[in-house]
Every structure is written in C-alpha cells, then in structure tokens.
Design a binder for these strands. Structure first.
Length: 109
DNA sequence: CGTATGACGAGCC
DNA sequence: AGGCTCGCCATAC
C-alpha cells in the first residue's frame, strides 16, 4: 500500500458532514510535517469520487487554492457544512477529531 | 543525486 | 485577527 493509498484510506474515514485538516491526515498517515504531502496526494486523486477530498481543509479553516474553492464549497454545503462567504469553515464546529465525547453537545446547537 | 514545487503549518508582527 | 516567512515531506525531472 503506497503512501497515497494510505492517505486516501484515512480520508475515507472522515464522517459525512465533518472535516479534517491536512495536518491531521498527515499524522494519521505517519508523517509529521507532511501536510503538504497530503495535499499532493489529494491533488493526485484518480477520481474526484475516489475519496472525500472536500472534507480536508487547511488548519486555517479557509478553503485551499482558488482552483478548487468553488467545487469544494459546493460539496461541503451539500453535506450541511457551513461555508463562509470568504470560504471559511468553522473547524471547531465541524472538526473530525475534536474528541468524540465533547463533540455531541455543540453539534446539536 | 540536487533543485524546484505544492489542495500545508506554526510563529511573528 | 490577518498576512508573511521559513520549514516540512514526497514527487518530478
């Protein structure tokens, strides 16, 4: 299993309606400062549907690159993930690994 | 094998 | 709070 495939497998574990950061994926894949590598891997996706790449965001919470901004925003909105007009997402609210326990409370609100 | 590049990240004003 | 700068890791040539 190549590194890219490992990245895809991890990305596929992100629940619908939730998001993760490149850095998180990188760490899950065994890399430390490999956030950029994750971006590289997702940019190399064979198909747009091969993995839910749109659920992966920079730690800044802003949608990466203008090139994919529109597409990503559309897909996120389709999952009820709120996207700011400036392309910002509240990772604190939709974040994947934000502690499964503490999550549910704020999720209702 | 060395240099350049990228869908990033954390620290600094 | 928001924009810059330098550092990271893997791939391409």
């Amino acid at each position: 299993m190549s590194l890219f495939e490992r990245v895809y497998a991890i990305v596929r574990r992100i629940p619908r309606g939730r998001v993760a950061t490149y850095g998180e994926i990188a760490r899950e894949a065994g890399l430390r400062g490999g956030a950029r590598t994750v971006g590289w891997a997702l940019a190399s996706l064979p198909d747009a549907e091969a993995a839910p790449w749109w659920r992966v965001l920079p730690a800044t919470g802003r949608i990466a690159g203008r090139r994919i901004e529109a597409e990503q925003r559309k897909r996120l909105l389709a999952e009820r993930v709120r996207v700011d007009a400036a392309g910002r997402i509240d990772i604190g609210r939709y974040g994947w690994s934000r502690g499964s326990a503490a999550r549910r409370r704020s999720d209702r609100g």
